[in-house]
Amino acid sequence: MARTISYREAVNEALRQEMERDPSVIVMGEDNAGGAGSPGEDDAWGGVLGVTKGLYEQFPGRVLDTPISESAFVGAAVGAATRGLRPVAELMFIDFMGVCFDQIFNQAAKFRYMFGGKAVTPVVVRTMYGAGLNAAAQHSQCLYPVFTHIPGLKVVLPSSPYEAKGLLIQAIRDNDPVIFCEHKALYDMTGEVPEDSYTIPFGEANVVRDGDDVTIVALGRMVSVAEEAAAELARQGVQAEIIDPRTTSPLDSDTILESVENTGRLVVVDEATPRCSMATDISALVAQEAFGALRAPIEMVTAPHTPVPFAQTLEQLYIPDAQKVANAVKKTMDWKK
């Protein structure tokens, strides 16, 4: 049955259940097995934020510690996937993608296409993203648009514990490379999650809230920010529909377009920097496919085009909040030609 667990526990449970179900699933990454066996440590640290804790004990030999060499271990995971394993590699922070990007975009993403559909690469790269933990410019970015840009990759942004578990199980069972992006600030978020295994298909947006006045498309952590804004807007008589795309590749454009056809207004909320982002991508989609339905210019609520500041006050200012979302919605509501 469904019980309330955290986002961190939901990710852990998905890994555990898939490792129980399928012996070809392995977990690898920096400090995933770290600490285990050393004096005073019975269990592994479970990665830098403890997400894989407990798996080392339960699955001997299937939770691998790797050197601090993303290029090597992501490459190893990709290679192992082509040879029949289903590796889940933990790229500690998405900010480190630069040192292993060739293995992902030029190798994993291309095999199926270049080998005429005969090669499958069922690898999952779990990675942590996002600001809010005061971790400075090299550990706080939202780089998922870069992965979304690459054909051949599937890119997943779970916004809640329920989404985290179902999307990760789907990612592990999927035969294509999947970049699974976990927001660091969501790990302690709790929610109802079924005990049984389940999957959420890729490319199906979730309508988080129904509304007829404005469509808010929000990604990852921004879904709960949008909900907070929508609750305040409802008190002022504005009913916002919130759409969580859940995966940026594939993207469920139908659900977004149908909603905008109904509301006539679009606000996209994205924690990533604004240039070449999901915010611009979704805005372009709607401008192209639903222009006739629009009753106001599209609004984007994003981070500014700067690195993530270290100073806490500036970091808080950097991240889109409910007030900024509500302001953007009001702008679309008040707009006159």
């Binding site: 329920y162 079924p194 049984d196 295994s197 389940y198 999957t199 959420i200 309508v207």
Partner: peptide, 16 residues
């Protein structure tokens, strides 16, 4: 309601 449809979809997506 949306909640009813959501709950049923969550059920239908359980393994088995």
């Amino acid at each position: 309601t949306r909640q009813l449809a959501d709950d049923l979809m969550k059920f239908k997506r359980l393994d088995g």
